[in-house]
Design a protein around this nucleic acid. Sequence first.
DNA 1: TTGCTCCTCACGTCACGTGAGGTGGC
DNA 2: TTGCTCCTCACGTCACGTGAGGTGGC
Lengths: 124, 124
Amino acid sequence: MGMVVYSISELAKEFDITTRTIRFYEDRGLLNPSREGHKRIYSVADRVRLMLILRGRRLGFSVDESKELIELYNPKQNNKHQLAKYLLKIQEKQEVLGKQLKDIKILQKELKLAESRCLSALKI
Amino acid sequence: MGMVVYSISELAKEFDITTRTIRFYEDRGLLNPSREGHKRIYSVADRVRLMLILRGRRLGFSVDESKELIELYNPKQNNKHQLAKYLLKIQEKQEVLGKQLKDIKILQKELKLAESRCLSALKI
DNA sequence: TTGCTCCTCACGTCACGTGAGGTGGC
DNA sequence: TTGCTCCTCACGTCACGTGAGGTGGC
């Protein structure tokens, strides 16, 4: 049974975060690794969850928002009311992402302009 | 002389932030409105600075980073060393923005998928 | 024993949120 | 006076950063 598992420091190194950050997500209920004595053991599924958290973080989602988003991937036995609520959340996120996309494109243009001004001022 | 100016609450309402946030940016040296007695008076230039701060914020920049970015727009009398340093910052931001763009596109696809799954579960 | 990684507190920081308590002009 | 907006502290919160101090196996 070749179970692939990870230590906390392996994940921290891979994703360029601190172990404190990973423990914090556990504290907030986003991760729940198994233990070997006191040591945390992370499964492949735990690693995926961490990736999703970090993607959300890069996009400015709060920990609670990321938690909700991750739970969207696990259908579970949702009733209609829950589903409608989730649908609303999804649509809200889509709006925010649309705005962020615009912002990024504007900033990219401006950074290119600033870059070329810098370069010409440096006479390269 | 039709000088266009703004009160703190006008700007707060326009950009959907609190007055506390605006005062905070002043505290951190990003804004420097004139005063009329104790009241803050914001010029068109102040308003532009605030817009730039908020754009940086939406993209996950710290206040200090936004401050630096804004100063990129004001050429001033930069020496070569300063310019080279700024160029590096610009290129770092461009890398981060590239990653964020990718993340957003991935999340958008996943949200669309989640949305259609929700909709079909709700039988709309 | 040294060196490595792991652990649990627990205080500090950043970017504000949120009252508390007060002033000023229509 | 009431109602509105403005002000200055100042403590609280969120997402961690950063040691302090200690354990466990090669």
